[in-house]
Design a protein around this nucleic acid. Structure first.
Lengths: 345, 345
DNA sequence: TAATTTGCTGTGTACGCACACACTATTACG
DNA sequence: CGTAATAGTGTGTGCGTACACAGCAAATTA
């Protein structure tokens, strides 16, 4: 096990000083062509990689990473990536990484703008964000790109902004999975009810893709069935009433309910307590967990929000500290959660 | 954002030299009680953590981690943790971590002994292993404990050996989950067939626990059912024939088949092609993936072997490099894999 | 020709820590 | 009383890198 080559070693072989080698490594010029070439050759021959400890010690720089996500209010979704980030911080803390939180009020443009401006002023080295408010997010990311401030996106991708990495799921396939799980063991002709309860700042793109996937699966595998899509605004005053009406109307041959996002808990009371009607939703919020436990919902698709937060920091570490390029996209698996495996997620 | 406290800073506050502080940190004694206390107080007040870069630079030590698992031969299970280890290596490479592979011939005691002895001679700093050969593993781990060589166990726990960390699943709950998934949508009276195909070096303990969990779930939730457990040695010459006979015997009211380990692929040909008979097995080997795709199996429980490898290295990093204590146990979630989400695992 | 610029190179220091070593009091003992 | 052991303390060096700075010769300018 040969000791890894050092700057000193290279300098000795090239018969120059470490300063000259350093100039080559950092491409600061002011080196004669002859030496330039010589040193480069030796470096590639020895397969030189800078010692990270030495580098960081000498730079003595703590990279500042901004986390820009909605603040936790009622539903618990955004506390999960935060938890993952904290976990990662704990592991990478000793490695010159500091994460600063910029939590804005969900769906409030002004709050987003305020926090995102703060990031630009605070001279950060990287941004981790979930693009909730589409327009504002775009505007902000454009500014980041201008200053060549690297950013990692979680939850939803804006691929034309060319993020360092996107971490999230495949919405279409997630819908297909829902179709598979809800039709499992059901052969008789029946109706599938899709509940699309949308909040203000929600990215309907995702939900739409999920529904498309859902229908794609059923079309492919089932013969005699009906799909009814029911979209409604989460803030609707008569929410529960309208949903109840809808369910009553289709219940005679209702086979399963597909709730396209994490909002299952909003309609818990409306769900039929008929054993043969299967219900599937998204995300392991505390309230949704309770529904699983009570048997009101049979399955949830889990997006690993904690891991998303963790991996985002990991990517930043890779990029900033070890100077490696993280993968362009990390696809989160579609975890199926039932009462019997919920405790592990 | 105050700069993190350094040894120098502490020394200044305590009015001593950095040497004295150093002695306190490393508990090397030779410090007066008064100063000892004073320095400890200041350290906890400032919440001092040594700078990892400085430490490692000065130690200039590359930690050598031994990976002791079966070599990849026919089935692909053990290539997965290896892959995870490599992934982790890539990320932590720059951090004084080197993993050395000690791959032994599966189920061959002599090979295990040879490799494990090599580890002891090679002066490693940590061991990652999967305890396959029970007696040999015990013997080896005892020697590790003697030399206070830390080890992380994956896949199967020997908790009385007090590993640094155990990474794996809960076998009992995994059986319960199998019960839930196989009985989903089945109310009529029916028979559940449990296929327990054991290899030579296999740890039947795990399979037994899985079966117990399976039965526990059915007893709790179903009324009218029968469970038949069929155990057989994987090397049995008449394997397929015997299994075929068994299946034919129960097929009239056979509802589902539970294969207790990764060996589904061995009996692929025997599986009934009846849509209403659901089959569930373990582990995403290539061959099992094919069964999923062909519809011969509906579900697999995934043990995240890649992650197990990755996390094992991560634990070692935490323990050796950053000197933090990793969690005693990391419970791997019970992932449910179906044809529609298999591509993400 | 002297003065200045330019191109290239080497030196020195800092970063935070670990550890070997040297040093000073204090105490013990013959 | 002198020598030796001992407890407690400070100093110095090295780890590998980054970067400011100084130096020095050749080329250019005044």
């Amino acid at each position: 096990m040969a000791a890894p080559p050092t700057i000193k070693e290279i300098a000795k072989r090239a018969n120059v000083s470490i300063g000259t080698v350093d100039r080559v490594i950092h491409k600061r010029g002011k080196v004669s062509k002859k030496n330039q070439k010589l040193i480069e050759d030796i470096m590639s021959e020895l397969n030189y990689t800078p010692n990270v400890n030495g580098r960081n010690l000498s730079l003595n720089k703590t990279y500042k990473i901004a986390l820009l996500i909605p603040e936790e209010i009622d539903d618990g979704y955004w506390s999960a990536p935060l938890e993952g980030v904290k976990k990662a911080q704990n592991i990478f803390r000793s490695s010159n990484l500091a994460v600063h939180y910029y939590l804005y009020k969900k769906d409030v443009e002004e709050s987003f703008q305020e926090k995102s401006n703060k990031i630009l002023n605070d001279d950060c080295d990287g941004v981790i964000m979930a693009p909730q408010l589409y327009n504002e997010a775009n505007l902000f990311l454009r500014k980041c790109a201008e200053r060549s401030l690297p950013f990692v996106l979680i939850d939803f991708n804006l691929s034309d902004m060319e993020p360092l990495t996107y971490i999230g799921q495949n919405a279409f396939q997630s819908g297909r999975l829902a179709g598979e799980l809800l039709s499992l063991g059901k052969n008789e002709s029946s109706t599938f009810l899709v509940m699309n309860i949308t909040g203000k700042g929600d990215k309907n793109v995702i939900f739409r893709r999920r529904i498309e996937g859902f229908q794609s699966y059923l079309n492919e595998k089932l013969k005699d069935f009906k799909v009814e899509v029911f979209s409604i605004f989460a803030g609707d005053i008569a929410l529960k009433q309208k949903i109840n009406e809808k369910i009553q109307k289709v219940i005679p041959d209702l086979s399963a309910i597909f709730i396209t996002n994490s909002k299952s808990y909003l309609i818990a009371d409306c769900l039929p307590q008929n054993e043969s009607i299967r219900v599937l939703g998204y995300d392991l919020l505390m309230k949704n967990r309770a529904l699983l436990k009570d048997g009101k919902i049979q399955m949830l698709i889990h997006q690993r929000p904690i891991d998303q937060g963790y991996m985002a920091v990991e990517c930043m570490y890779q990029y900033l500290v070890t100077k490696q390029k993280p993968p362009e996209e990390i696809v989160i698996p579609l975890d199926i959660v039932t009462p019997e495996n919920a405790m592990f997620y």
